[in-house]
């Protein structure tokens, strides 16, 4: 086992996984929030756009999205982000992970928004706040708090889903695992080590989420 760690850049691969996860989490949060706002907006067209986005990305397998990004967008349509294939695959992976999980972030947020009593929105409007103001100052802050538990689940799923990027050749954890298995043969201890790496990455997030949701819970 020590020999394997010496011969392969496992740390580099895990670092790549973390980069993928962090960048995609940021992307998913930003896009997801925007889509959630669209879905609760009073304008039917915007609601329609939001619903279509969620239904499209939530119901498409991530593997299909990944392969489509390189095989479809990059190869057939020529939408190459970077000249170098490895960089190109990495950035497409970030985009697809962001879009896919944005759908889940949106739904988590929307469930959070639904925990805010209608009276809050009505009160905000009745004291003269605009839609934007009541959303940013009253509804969203409370809904983020209510959405912490499902959001954390989404981020944990995102971290594990970064392994799907291996199908387009991103050199992250699952990619190096494939390389090691090819050269050294498959072994249970090795798989367990990689499983453990993911536990180490996701467990703190779960603990943090539990603490946060307890601390920030809206007292009603």
């Amino acid at each position: 086992m020590g020999e394997i760690f010496a011969n392969y850049d496992i740390v580099g691969a895990v670092w790549k996984t973390i980069q993928l996860a962090v960048l995609s989490a940021i992307g998913a949060t930003v896009i997801g929030t925007i889509v959630a706002v669209l879905r609760v907006s009073p304008v039917p067209v915007l609601r329609g756009i939001g619903t279509t986005f969620v239904n499209t990305f939530r119901n498409t397998p991530l593997t299909v999205l990944m392969i489509m990004s390189v095989l479809g967008f990059s190869f057939l349509l020529g939408l190459q982000i970077r000249e170098d294939f490895a960089d190109n695959a990495f950035w497409w992976a970030v985009i697809m992970l962001s879009l896919y999980h944005a759908a889940f972030v949106c739904e988590a947020l929307r469930s959070g928004i639904n925990t805010v009593p209608a009276g809050q929105a009505e009160a905000a409007r009745s004291i003269g706040l605009t839609f934007k103001q009541s959303l940013l100052e009253v509804i969203l802050p409370q809904s983020f708090r209510g959405a912490i538990a499902p959001l954390v689940s989404t981020y944990i799923a995102l971290i594990k889903n970064t392994t799907v990027a291996a199908v387009i050749g991103v050199a992250e954890s699952a990619g190096i695992l494939a390389t090691i298995t090819e050269n050294e043969g498959g072994s249970l201890p090795l798989f367990l080590v990689f499983a453990l790496i993911f536990v180490v990455l996701t467990l703190p997030l779960g603990v943090l989420g539990t603490n946060l949701s307890r601390k920030l819970a809206v007292k009603r």
């Binding site: 392969i67 095989l71 490895a86 291996a166 199908v167 050749g169």
Partner: peptide, 10 residues
């Protein structure tokens, strides 16, 4: 410039 996929079909 090497692109890698999961299978050769791609």
């Amino acid at each position: 410039n090497l692109q890698e996929f999961a299978t050769y079909s791609e």
